[in-house]
């Protein structure tokens, strides 16, 4: 459904940079999503919340992967840093949820800035490896700095403010936040800046010879992407009221990337579809067999073979063929 909203806007702008059709689609999608808790059980509402949070993470990775041609394996760490900071700030330092939330996002952005400074000079597999290594450093710190992070056991605390304790209230809050940041990301990738990133993806040398400062663009892109991953991480802290090194581990980064790929690289909103597909699959399959990881693995291979553009990418291609 969301595909249409991502179509290049050739039509005249009408509302907040969106075409009439895009506004309508966005409104319908949000309305349907907002109505979900009325029909779902509490547990399913919890799952839906998780899907939204991981959808935002996948989208933040897509900013780099789909629009700047740089796949990051360090975003799980950036995401997790925000989670750690939020849990620490509320549970240990006793700060208010709002302050903690802001601090978490700031910390994640800061980490992304550092990552970006080191990583933007590279591309391709080197970028992948560098971000992977940086993420592992964060994981190592969280694991070993026991006094602050609680080591292997992690940290617990009541992060969620009183008025968000119910499943539904929290879901709606996350939905509002996710809609807001999705819109922001969508605007970002369609801005002149975002188009420059696209240009860099397609041909770095050409952009350079046109006078664009490639490194600075990539650096800013990385920081912005880290900011959004931080938003997701802060929401995750409130969702779980708990954080441990597994939240910053490589597996988290990989899961984010897989969600993005399953949804469709460069489709942005595919992040939600990918997150939904993977989280739903994990939950359904794992209740039937303990070999659920194998089933997931096979599913990924099948996705790669049959729909390399991801779920949204394939749907979009089908729509296009129809229109012709």
């Amino acid at each position: 459904m969301t595909t249409i909203a991502t179509q290049p806007a050739l039509q005249s702008r009408t509302f907040a940079g969106m075409t009439g059709r895009a506004v309508a689609v966005a409104a319908i999608v949000i309305a349907v999503a907002a109505a979900l808790p009325l029909v779902l059980s509490n547990y399913q509402v919890g799952l839906a919340t998780e899907i939204l949070i991981f959808g935002v993470l996948a989208m933040s990775i897509d900013i780099l992967a789909g629009f700047a041609g740089r796949t990051s394996l360090g975003h799980g760490a950036i995401f997790g840093v925000s989670t750690y900071v939020v849990v620490y700030a509320t549970a240990q330092a006793g700060l208010s949820p709002a302050t903690s939330f802001a601090l978490g996002i700031a910390a994640a952005t800061l980490v992304a800035v550092v990552f970006g400074l080191l990583a933007v000079r590279t591309s391709g597999v080197y970028f992948l490896l560098l971000t992977l290594a940086l993420g592992m450093i964060v994981w190592g710190i969280c694991l070993r700095w026991t006094q602050v992070t609680g080591g292997e056991n992690g940290m617990r605390g009541d992060v969620r403010p009183e008025w968000l304790v119910s499943h539904r209230a929290f879901y709606w809050a996350v939905l509002a936040a996710a809609s807001l940041v999705s819109y922001a990301m969508w605007r970002f990738v369609r801005s002149p800046f975002g188009l420059t990133l696209l240009g860099i993806r397609d041909s770095e040398s050409r952009m350079r010879s046109l006078g664009y400062n490639v490194s600075v663009h990539l650096f800013v892109g990385f920081a912005v992407s880290g900011f959004f991953a931080g938003v997701a991480g802060a929401l995750y802290a409130m969702f779980n009221n708990f954080v441990s090194p597994s939240t910053v581990a490589l597996a988290q980064s990989v899961e984010g990337v897989l969600m993005m790929i399953a949804g469709g690289v460069g489709t942005l909103f595919g992040g939600f579809v990918g997150a939904a597909a993977i989280i739903a699959l994990e939950n359904v399959v794992s209740s039937y067999t303990e070999r659920w990881q194998m089933v997931l693995g096979i599913t990924f291979i099948l996705i790669m073979i049959f729909t390399p553009e991801g779920i949204i990418g394939t749907l979009r291609a089908m729509l296009k063929r129809k229109e012709r």
């Binding site: 992690g154 617990r156 009221n241 708990f242």
Partner: peptide, 10 residues
């Protein structure tokens, strides 16, 4: 322990 502590908190 980390899995148990997470569930305990829940």
């Amino acid at each position: 322990a980390n899995t148990g502590l997470a569930v305990a908190n829940y």
